[in-house]
Each structure stands twice: as C-alpha cells, then as structure tokens.
Amino acid sequence: MSKIAYIKPDSVGDAIEILADKGSSAAIIAGGTDVMVDLRSGEITPEYLVDISRLEELKGIRMENDELVIGAGVTLSEIYNSDLLAEYAPALKKSAYNFASAQIRNIATIGGNVAHCSPCGDTIPPLVIHEAEVLLSGKDGQKRIPIEQVATGPYRSFLEPHELITAFVLKPRKAAFADFKKIGRRKDLAISRLSMAVMIDKSDDGTISFMRFSLGACTPTPHRMIPVEEFMVGKKPTEKLLFEGGRLLAESMIEITGRRPSIIYKEPAVQGLFVRMLHPVVN
C-alpha cells in the first residue's frame, strides 16, 4: 500500500544525496501546485516527497556578471513583483500576471513550472526568448543546459531523478518592446490554450533589428520560432506584415504538431494573437 514519507533536506547537496539514494521513488516538491494535484489524481505515486521549498540556495533574483540569475525556488509572486525583471526580462514578469491565482502565485515556483514539463507552462516562452540556460545539480555535479532541452515531450523531463534545477540564467535585455500574452478559457485561473512571448528592437529607420519569439502551449515542447524571427527582422512592421508573420507562425506550428482537432482553433488564433501582441510595434 501507499507509503509516503516526507523529507526536508537542509541544503541542495543534502537534497541531491537523498534523491540519488531514493531514485525514482522520490518526488521533489517545491510549491506543490502540480505535485499535490498529481498526488490526488493518482497521476504520481511516490514513496518520498522531498521538500525543497525552503532551501535558501534556490531563492533570489540577481545580476551576476551580466547574466540574470533566477533561483528555481523563486515564486511567481516574486517574479511579478521584481523590479529587476521589469527592467531586464519584462515578458517574464508579465507571464506572472495572469498565472493561476494570487494564492497559487504565492507558492508556485518557476523551477516547478519548468520541471513539470507541461506544454502550457507560462514562464517557459519568456525564458526561451531570453535564451535561458538551466542550472542543474546532480550527483555528478553541475550542468548547464538550454531551456528548450528540459522537456523531451509533454510532461516528460530530461532530468535524472537525482537532478535538481537550482537556477535559470537569462540573457538580460532591455528591449524596446517586450510582451507575453496568453489565451485561456477564462480571464484568470486559466491554463493557457496558447501563449507567446516576444522581444523586439527597431533600428532608426523603423525596421525590426532584433526579435526573439517563442510560442507556448501549442507544441509538445517549447520552441523559439526562428523562421518567424528571421522573416520579421529587417522589415518595417506593418499590419500586413504581422498577418504574414502570424501566418508563417501558424504554418510552423502545424509543421511540428500536425493537424490535430485543436488546430481548428489554434491555427487562426496563433496568427491572431501574434497580430494582437505585436500591433503596438506598427509605427
């Protein structure tokens, strides 16, 4: 029968040791907003819950050598309230605004959001456009992998059972325009049906000189949509261009996913949301 033990390690090192020892019978719990739901539904049946929610080593948002470092234990509320992120990663900050509810934002962590490998994780597209790298600690030491490699499929993680995300390292950027948008079935407390994050800079002549764009909730794993970026860069943003870029985005998405039933909505909607999100950069 189910036997669950609770373990609260005192340090990351401690946690790794425990995780290495227990193997796949242990589950990490941070904010618990995914873990508790999965426990209730029987989706996961761990024997050990390893609580990392109070490890100081996983906290904090800071600049280190021109890199923006966000601890895996940083909560969505902390992300939303961070002045540093407002300056250097505003799209990430915005992704916290319509994330679940106040209660959940107060405990849910960015590490949990990424590690859960849900295609709908709202912090992921912003992390992708900042070309984030994920700091992993495991029994073999530390690793740094690109954010796009964490998920190998929906809810399937690249991480070994003994590995822990300790932090995310972002390329900070004060872009002229940055945004995150999502569409859910209601205005709050909604999982993204689709989401996207973008950063744009323009040259003096008004053409797009720099663009980073990522689509969320539509593909099994997160993607920077490089063809879309390439298409847009060097051009003057007009409404017409946005529709074309959005069209290309929809096509790129379908190339990855194939034509599933949900595409009937998502095909026009990704194009539409793309236009809506980028409209402020027209002129």
């Binding site: 569409i183 909505y265 909607a269 194009q271 539409g272 949301l273 236009v275 809506r276």
Partner: peptide
C-alpha cells in the same frame, strides 16, 4: 430584460 455590452476580439475569439 437584460442589456449586454460586449467587446469581441476578432483575432482570438475572446
């Protein structure tokens, strides 16, 4: 009798 004032996002269906 109710009167509704609605705004429709023609791009997203919201």
């Amino acid at each position: 009798c109710h009167m509704a004032q609605v705004e429709v996002d023609v791009l997203t269906g919201e």
